[in-house]
Nucleic acid binder design. Structure first.
Lengths: 199, 199
DNA sequence: CTATTTCTGTACCGATCGGTACGCAAGTCG
DNA sequence: CGACTTGCGTACCGATCGGTACAGAAATAG
């Protein structure tokens, strides 16, 4: 009963998280279908069977990559939700988002959108849409509180405003992927904020 | 010299434009990489060699499909540019765009974005980005005139405003592809218009 | 030590990818 | 009527796709 039947056998020769980061980057640049297993395993530095043993198959690897992406590259969103006022939440989210979309050490744009809006395997696009929707709902919840607390005007529709914010963020992601620079994204955010009560 | 060496030989057994419309729909639904030649030729109702003879190869077929899409499914954009004031141009564009993104007889979203943000063949994404940019510049030109004519406030940045409008439109396209309904797109547009001088 | 378990690397699987060779059908020319 | 030109349909090409069988290597358990 000492070894919990898990430490037996040959130990894994790679760090699963570190290797997953390389997969994130490949999916981000090439999309789900554009990233072949050869691309992925080469970037990850492991062989194909090791990848299958660790993650199952390509789609499960992609889902793991999205989870890792959300935890690492979208941490700024959680930060934004912790701002004190509804307007500050939105302004912080959009501006930090603009920065995240144009980091020099990462692919431009957003993995959730680059990954595959239109893809042969139906599950992938729906999975991505669902994870974006989860973020939108978290924002709507925060804005609902802002209305209740009075720092957004009574009568403001929190869900509609949250959707607007996500639309701006996703549109910026499309522009960033097409090569728009950081300053122009921030300029767009400044215009967009004029539509937000308090801006 | 009667027949200009073009009417000779067996005549083509299909209407090139009608067949291209079917290709548009396949690319729209599945993206550039997700649409296989088998998918395409089956939907077009022609054989592979007929497609190659008529269009060259898959990428040229895609470019032809984009051109056809711009002429047919984005005609509303030209209409919007002909509105009388800068605000009317933007409002008309965004609202007719919301309708176009959710037509019952067409795939949801926008071919230019569904087609392939991230794709293996580098040329495709750049071509799509360039065609979106052309629309943005046409809008900027129209808004520049609106500032000159005084129906947008002096000091308004036409290029920045045009980019903002395209960002909203592209963000809405992402949402439409994920299944958002027409009403919620229009609600987003109404919020977005509050950022536009005159809204 | 041997037995057992688990990971690694090679080498391969059938399916599908984009693209094409080639013979036949269907027209216009003289 | 041939002679010629062009599109159509079958049947196929090499390359690459996602996924795996299998044997050897590296660890623990006894």
């Amino acid at each position: 009963m000492s070894g919990t039947a898990r430490d037996r056998g040959r130990p894994r020769g790679f760090d699963a998280d570190a290797v997953l980061d390389r997969a994130v980057e490949v999916f981000w640049r090439r999309g789900y279908e554009g990233a072949s297993l050869s691309d992925l395993t080469e970037a990850m530095g492991i062989n194909r069977p090791s990848m299958y043993a660790a993650y199952g198959n390509k789609e499960q690897l992609f889902r793991a990559a999205i989870a890792r992406y959300a935890a690492v590259d979208m941490a700024y969103a959680g930060e934004a939700l912790r701002q004190e006022t509804g307007f500050a939440v939105i302004a912080t989210f959009l501006h930090t988002n603009a920065d995240a979309l144009t980091r020099a050490d990462r692919p431009p744009g957003c993995l959730s959108i680059q990954g595959g809006l239109a893809t042969g395997s139906a599950g992938v696009a729906e999975f991505l849409a669902a994870s974006r929707l989860a973020g939108e709902q978290a924002l709507a919840e925060r804005l609902r509180r802002a209305v209740a607390e009075g720092d957004l005007p009574a009568g403001t529709d929190p869900a509609g405003l949250a959707r607007y914010v996500m639309v701006v963020s996703e549109g910026n992601a499309v522009h960033a992927a097409a090569g728009a620079d950081r300053a122009s994204l921030h300029r767009t955010v400044d215009i967009a904020l004029r539509a937000v009560p308090g801006g």
